[in-house]
Amino acid sequence: MLETRHLAIGYSGKPVASGIDLAVGRGEVLCLLGPNGAGKTTLFKTLLGLIPVLDGSVAIDGKPVAGLSRRSLARAIGYVPQAQTMEFAYTVFDLVLMGRTAHLGPFAAPRAADRERASAALADLGILDLADREANRLSGGQRQLCLVARALAQDTPLLVMDEPTASLDLGNRFLVLDQVRALRDRGFGVIFSTHDPDQARDLATRVAVISNGGLAAYGAPDETLTASVLSTVYGVPIAIERTDSGRSVVTFARS
């Protein structure tokens, strides 16, 4: 339901990458990989309508994103940024409540129904007990889950997550990835970026590898996350080993 055609992305007219054709539908996970600076975040900002499309198009349910109002866009696609410390000490609940913004009347503050929706989103992720805690004082993983809850409260069929597992410890990483899987199974369309090919192989319906100003590979995980693609994109020799249990693991191929 989200589709890009010959999309060129970049800042103030300078393209970072072009010729990007992607699609993600309900119940699908699109995983985005690529070296630092390849344009993963730029692509996300373009999909969210935060920076203009340089060329080509982004459409949600057939409607070009450029023609949608902020409000309609925020009802179609939710954004889970990387969790950062905020200047003001909002509670987890208040932060999640802000997810309701696109559903409020022009001059209104959230009502009882919005507060219930925020509580439900927290309960969905099993973190309702954190509601009254100060978001800044949570662990990185809890804060990331809190932002996922905010996106759930936003009630959008599509979710964009910018490296949701970066800077998380092992336990929190599993916790967040498990929620991505659960969201997929509940019919959400999820796009997320990661630096870990094994994560992508585990979760993704499709994988897009962005590098050198365009898509280096796009398709099913097994077709895209090959030793040759990864070696070319990251510029180091990479091998893929198969464990006894049949899982593929990416390793550094020392020469």
Binding site: L50, R70, G99
Partner: peptide
């Protein structure tokens, strides 16, 4: 007073506020 809610959302930063539907 009328825009009290979107003004508060602005404190999250421009990109987050936009993605939450604030002009």
């Amino acid at each position: 007073i009328l825009l009290r809610w979107p003004i508060g959302v602005l404190s999250l930063g421009d990109d987050e506020a936009r993605s939450l539907g604030v002009n």
